[in-house]
Write a protein that binds this DNA or RNA. Structure first.
Length: 115
DNA sequence: TTCCTGACTCCAG
DNA sequence: CCTGGAGCCAGGA
């Protein structure tokens, strides 16, 4: 029986590092992170990583990770349903109706290819 | 062990 | 434009 937990932990740690690299006032997507880590199609794992990221140190700014449409799909996993949006707005990101406004402008690609 | 679910995304109809 | 299915893979029952 192979211990996948070690790989998993590394993967999760990598996810956390990338998320912590997201500049304040910018956001990225689950898919972009997964692709950056060489696991294209494993965007759900990035979501799962966020799910268990609570209590991490340093803190993981999970509010900066949204789905490919700029929709705040993970907001229900915060302390309150509005916490995610509130934190983003506090950082200068405009959110309306759970949707990041000017998403193309605030999107940050982990690979640094786009800017 | 098998089966189901999910903070996702892509593709076909 | 909207809906459903498939791929993805770690956990929990």
């Amino acid at each position: 029986m192979i211990k996948y937990s070690e790989n998993t932990q590394s993967f999760f740690q990598d996810v956390y590092e990338v998320v912590r690299l997201i500049p304040k006032g910018r956001v990225t997507t689950y898919g972009a992170i997964a692709e950056y880590l060489g696991s294209r199609g494993s965007s759900r794992m990035v979501g799962w990583a966020m799910n268990v990221s609570h209590g991490q140190h340093p803190p993981v700014p999970a509010q900066r990770v949204v789905n490919r449409n700029g929709l705040l799909t993970g907001r229900h996993h915060f302390e309150t349903p509005d916490a995610m949006q509130h934190q983003l707005e506090k950082e200068g990101v405009t959110v309306k109706n759970n949707q990041v406004q000017y998403f193309d402008s605030v999107f940050w690609n982990p690979s640094g290819e786009l800017f």
